[in-house]
Amino acid sequence: MGEEELHQLIAGCIKQDRKCQKMLYKAFYGFSMGICLRYAGNRDEAAEVMNQGFFKVFTHIQSFDTSRPFKAWLGKIMMNVSIDYYRANLKMAYTEDLEQAEHVSDGDIADKNLNYNDLLAMVQKLPQAYRTVFNLFAIEGYSHEEIATMLNINAGTSKSNLHKARQKLKNMILKADSSAGGANYNNGMDCSPIVAIKAINMNGVFLNKGIRE
């Protein structure tokens, strides 16, 4: 989308024009959903949070400074809405001992062939507190001090949550690898007992050091 077209859309949104709102929504749907999916536990939750974000965007769009990049502003709103959601659900926060995760041996995780959906599913499987910190640190690039302020926690808690998140993710990656016979990590169709296909796949994995063809 060209800069000019975007500004026209924004101008339309300021006038609360529904068509412009929808066009803007469609144009940035993927970008916004991408952010919300990382913070949310599942797609429905992400869609709900994203809509809250767009609601804010449409009700506050007159305060947007057009000289600044819209995408960054939108991304920031999506992140903030996700954090708000996390805060609102703190009572539901899940705490789990990491006994099992602690003893995972270090393996090479970089060359696993995992696609977007695999990785997203892993992040979504993290407990909310870990997931939020992991997102803010690893993907958004905030420091522990900044995260501590944002989430109203200690920097130490942030570090600890990040560590636990990484442990869990690594565990999941290794597990995904060990069960690579099931093709993609996220592919739920593979519980069908077609042994022959699985066997072939497994052979492929075995011969190819875990890299799928």
Binding site: K26, Y29, G30, R38, L120, A138, I139
Partner: peptide
């Protein structure tokens, strides 16, 4: 590990399909 996730998850526009139902929900909200 961080880079792996960052690279794949940072801007996954092509991976996400637009769903009309989501807009309907937002429209209701608006």
């Amino acid at each position: 590990l961080d880079d792996l996730f960052k690279k794949k998850l940072e801007d996954p526009v092509d991976e996400i399909r637009y769903e009309e139902g989501d807009w309907d929900a937002l429209e209701q909200l608006l």
